[in-house]
Design a protein around this nucleic acid. Structure first.
Lengths: 251, 251
DNA sequence: CGCCCCATTGAGACGGCTCAACTTGCGTGG
DNA sequence: CCACGCAAGTTGAGCCGTCTCAATGGGGCG
């Protein structure tokens, strides 16, 4: 959903476990997250405040609702889900984050995190202490602008999601999610057609306001109609035009 | 939904029509929008970049999708609605903005506005040129922080809205909207119980993902159950606890 | 007065939910 | 190695909440 700021993907210089040595300058995700206008010197200044910790395992929480807000995070590898839990224990998945995307802006407002963040598979993130980022943003105006842009992107995509939840039927919601994932794969120069879903049917359904049964049935129907092919989490998009149509169909 | 930044409410020093002479310093909304930590001198610097134009009439658009992004806006009086229109003409109301609240962050990401903004009644806004605000934010760190907070608040409330649209039934959605309005009235020291809705049933329904018929029926039922009283757009909340319960009921 | 827009109310249709049964894949332990 | 349990996913049958369609009422305005 959101774009990214400073995700250092070390899959290129695939460093082994333990502590991570990597830098923004030779990260193949920096085009996605750092402001393009940032010059080498500035990139290094940003690089210096970033903390790269050991990978999260599937199910590990990065933070939880109520935790003090200290940092935002750029996904370096894997995939991450954010979700709310309301007073009665109702959960709402609010987003999926892929490499090169930035999360954690919940928490900026109240200095406390407002959602839960959990890894959907083995994942690594760049932690960016927010106070230091603010200091740096005062000095590097393109960085400040970029921060505003990232948050603006999040707001825009959340509004699109409101439209999806409010106006589209099950097929439209599924199609919207699949095309969103496809576009975000394409941004990383991965195939926009063949992908492995990082999330369970449960998470898809929760995110889209549908039950797992409806998700399953809808995927099966799209498969039968040869719009996609489904094999568990392996998905192939076979008819983008049709998916586009479904996205824009009213409920 | 969003909080505010710099809304100068001139209803106190009720200046007449035509051009508006007002200042943040003696605006009774500044507590809502300016960072509390801002000292007098800084308030004046912010004040200087703000443009106060003539009021919008009901139905007037402040900007439309695709318009170049130049400013954000603080509502000074009246009420404003923002809405998306997708390719097929499907509309989605994405927010209602009351005095003291700030809108316009759509557009930050792409330098083009991503939604339409229209006045629901005679309204006035403070226009804040974004470039100048960015410049000032580089100099006044509390202002930069405040900007991040405002955008963070917007993101949080949008996520709450996703939960509402995805998980609550009609009663829960209506109750959630009513309580949200109530809290926002209370922030301005207005009665949290008696209010005049600024929007039509159509707009409520569109925002909440319901048809006008369902909105109408639900309001009638809540009236019959003595949870609220409804007379057109005049609403009295008579049982906050019950409304709270309804908010948290699963669908 | 008549028109139009907004809101209310009713009757019936339908999409997605609930409940339930079954399958598949995977890890554990006998 | 297979038996077993468990979690995730699929599929079916019936139900329910909201939508659709339609009729009616009320207020503002030319």
């Amino acid at each position: 959903m959101a774009s990214s700021i400073i995700a250092t993907n070390s899959s290129a210089n695939a460093c082994t476990h333990g502590f991570i040595k990597a830098s923004c300058s030779d990260c193949n995700l920096k085009g996605l997250c750092l402001p393009i206008a940032l010059d080498i010197g500035d990139i290094e200044r940003v690089d210096k405040i970033i903390q790269r910790s050991r990978p999260l395992q599937s199910g590990d929480h990065l933070y939880r609702t109520g935790d003090p807000f200290r940092s935002i995070y750029a996904v370096r590898s894997g995939s991450i889900k954010t979700y709310l839990v309301d007073e009665n224990g109702i959960e709402q998945v609010t987003g999926f984050f892929l490499p090169g995307e930035v999360l954690g802006f919940d928490g900026v407002a109240n200095h406390k995190h407002a959602c839960n963040v959990v890894a959907l598979e083995t994942s690594s993130v760049c932690e960016i202490p927010f106070e230091k980022l603010e200091e740096l943003s005062l000095q590097i105006h393109t960085l400040q602008h970029h921060m505003f842009q990232l948050m603006g992107q999040q707001i825009e995509s959340d509004h699109q999601m409101m439209l999806t939840l409010s106006k589209k039927n099950a097929e439209g919601r599924i199609a919207t999610l699949l095309l969103s994932l496809s576009k975000r794969y394409a941004r990383r120069n991965l195939s926009p057609n063949a992908m492995r879903l990082p999330m369970s049917r449960m998470d898809m359904g929760n995110f889209l306001g549908l039950t797992i049964e409806t998700v399953s049935r809808t995927l099966s129907r799209l498969h039968k109609e040869d719009v996609i092919s489904v094999d568990g989490r392996e998905i192939v998009l076979k008819n983008h035009e049709r998916l586009d149509e479904l996205c824009h169909l009213l409920q």
